[in-house]
């Protein structure tokens, strides 16, 4: 599985876009990490409360359920940027040059198409839970202490939209690599061997 991959950078527009986007993605990933941390603290508060003053955190489950989308979605584009979403790369590891870029282009294209449909669907899911005229804008609430669910639900289309931007960028890069028969396209995760090859080439060039 391709977990070892690297992204090349240079001063081209494509790479600059990639690096700016990566800053936003990193921020989102950190938010996701902090949410994991808060999950831990939530349990500490609830357990301590129960054992010391016989008062667990009210709505503990509801709060966990609210935090989960933060953890599950926010880092999705960051992970795609760094090639962290696992895949079977036994076939692609045999491919080189144009045939590799063609396969990558096609799989990323399908990913983008399905994400557009899912962004639409998850936005609709959010929209059903949101009502400007209702108290707290809420049309759907959690089971125990009735926290509005729309803030958690909107995280899906937001994080997925960032992923769609990332996929578009990768699509351009793979398309360009295919068109110009590039060996080392910018802004996309390269299977390790290709990256190593690229690094070697770079070192021979620089002497």
């Amino acid at each position: 599985m391709a977990s070892n991959s690297s992204v090349l950078v240079d001063k081209s527009l494509l790479s600059k876009l990639d690096q700016s986007l990566h800053k936003i993605e990193s921020l989102f990933a950190l938010i996701s990490g902090l949410a994991v941390f808060s999950l831990m603290m939530l349990a500490v508060i609830s357990v301590t409360g129960r054992h010391s003053i016989n008062q667990p955190l009210p709505g503990y489950v509801d709060w966990i359920e609210q935090a989960m989308p933060l953890i599950a979605f926010m880092g999705i584009a960051y992970t795609q940027r760094n090639g962290g979403h696992i895949r079977m790369d036994i076939l692609v590891s045999f491919l080189k040059g144009r045939s590799l870029w063609a396969v990558e282009f096609i799989t990323v294209l399908f990913m983008l198409l399905v994400m557009i449909l899912i962004i639409w669907g998850s936005w609709a899911h959010f929209a059903r839970s949101f009502d400007f005229s209702a108290p707290m804008w809420s049309r759907d609430s959690s089971m125990d202490i009735a926290i509005p669910l729309w803030p958690a639900k909107i995280l899906a289309p937001v994080a997925f939209s960032l992923l769609a931007v990332r996929l578009t960028l990768q699509l351009i890069s793979f398309g360009k690599a295919f068109a110009y028969n590039e060996t080392r396209p910018m802004a996309v995760p390269l299977v390790e061997s290709a990256a190593a090859q690229a690094a070697k080439e770079a070192s021979t060039v620089s002497g």
């Binding site: 839970s129 209702a134 809420s138 049309r139 759907d140 609430s141 959690s142 089971m143 009735a146 509005p148 669910l149």
Partner: peptide, 10 residues
Amino acid sequence: QFCAGYHRDK
């Protein structure tokens, strides 16, 4: 089928 208490605001 659903239960009203699952989601009061719905």
